[in-house]
Amino acid sequence: MCSKLLGVTLLTTVGLLSDNLQAKPLSCHQHFKQLSRVIETNYAGYADHGRAWITAEERKISERIEYEPTSDCYSLLSDWLTIFKDPHLTITQVKDPNMDNGRLSISASQPNIRWLSETVAYLAIPNFELSNRSTLLSLIQRHAEPLKKMEGLIVDIRGNQGQSFIVMMELFRLIETNNYQSRWHVLASKANRSYYKRLLQRFQYDNKPELESMYSNLVAKMEAYPNTWVEYRWPIAHPDNALPDLKSIYILTDNAVANAAEEFVIAAKTNDMVTVVGARTRGSLDYGEVVTHSLGDDDYHVFVPSQKRVWYQYGPIDNKGLSPDISADTNGDQIINDTYDLILSKKK
């Protein structure tokens, strides 16, 4: 009887020890090793940096982790990511109270049109959140008749961090582009392939045939050529209806404009009617389509760009941005009034 009780006690003790071992959190060094593997395997910008240089930087962080045990691990991991100088490549603590699902919360302001006169429209696009696509399409449709008589258009993208290319492309229902191309190379890693498959399923579910076709072809190429570079391009956009009276288009920018919003500026600038007013943009377009990776027991979320832009003009622009044609104070509404005056002066 005693031996049986002893056996049960030993088994229970071993079980508790096993549970404790499993529950033990990862060390900072283990988190860093995971982070390093995630970046090397999935980051579209990894190959743009020398391997020897990256290894040397890894060694520096490893030494800091070893010799500065009281240092904040999150800060050390963040410091290492900064060596790539990619504003898209970031890491957050999942339980950070200042974060929402691992990303900084973004205002959900919706697009809106305001008529400054019978022939001059002001279109504000605070962000390119995918949820705003239907709102933008509805807005354009609702103002279809007055838009046909429009002579001047002000597009305000100040503060727009460019969340979705899909929403950005809808603006070209109003603005015609000339020889504009947006080409990207996607790294077909296992995690990236899974991500693009989920995107494809989403567009199939939402019944978006043009996007389904583009992503279907991309996923097929990624499956056919795993762990290599696969090229794709966004379809060339054309206006739904001719705007025969439109003579001038002004785009308002500031230092927060980034990613798809910068892509919009580049595309729009192929139209001779477009003038950019405001301040230099942020410079965050060399890489894109961020995929979220977890470290440890969901201790950290790492946001890793899965693709890089193929530049034919303008770029690279990361941390440089796009300069405006006319510099102006971007705070408040005065920039809108001044731009409206520019449109009126052209009509005289």
Rank of each mutant, 00 (worst) to 15 (best):
D333K: 12
Y287Q: 04
H301V: 05
D325N: 06
P305Y: 11
L252S: 10
V257M: 09
P324T: 02
S306I: 02
H238D: 14
G315I: 01
I336L: 15
D329R: 11
Q307T: 00
V274R: 05
A256C: 03
M222T: 06
D286F: 02
E231D: 14
I249S: 07
D318Q: 11
P244M: 01
G315P: 07
I266W: 00
D329C: 13
E262W: 09
E289I: 01
P226K: 05
G278N: 10
K247V: 00
D272R: 13
I336K: 07
G296A: 03
D254T: 10
S327M: 03
I326V: 14
V219M: 00
F303M: 13
E263G: 13
R309T: 14
D254V: 05
E223H: 10
S323C: 00
I343P: 05
A268N: 02
A260M: 05
E289G: 02
A261M: 09
K269L: 15
A328S: 15
N241E: 15
P305H: 10
D325E: 06
R309S: 11
Y312I: 07
V290E: 06
N241D: 13
V304L: 05
M222W: 01
A261Q: 10
P235L: 13
A242C: 00
S213F: 00
L342E: 12
G283D: 06
W229H: 08
A328R: 10
R309P: 11
G278K: 05
G283I: 02
T275Q: 11
P305A: 08
N271K: 09
Q313C: 05
R282T: 02
T275M: 13
I343F: 09
V290R: 02
D318T: 01
D333M: 14
Y312A: 10
D333R: 13
Y215D: 08
L342V: 00
H301C: 08
A267Q: 02
N337C: 11
R282K: 15
Q334A: 09
E262Y: 07
K320F: 12
A260S: 14
Y314N: 08
A242V: 11
W234E: 08
I317Q: 01
N337T: 14
L344K: 15
W311I: 07
Y314G: 01
E223R: 09
G296V: 05
E231F: 09
R233Y: 10
S248D: 03
G332A: 15
I266S: 04
L342P: 00
K308D: 01
T270S: 13
L246G: 05
P239E: 11
V290C: 06
S284R: 12
G278A: 10
G332H: 13
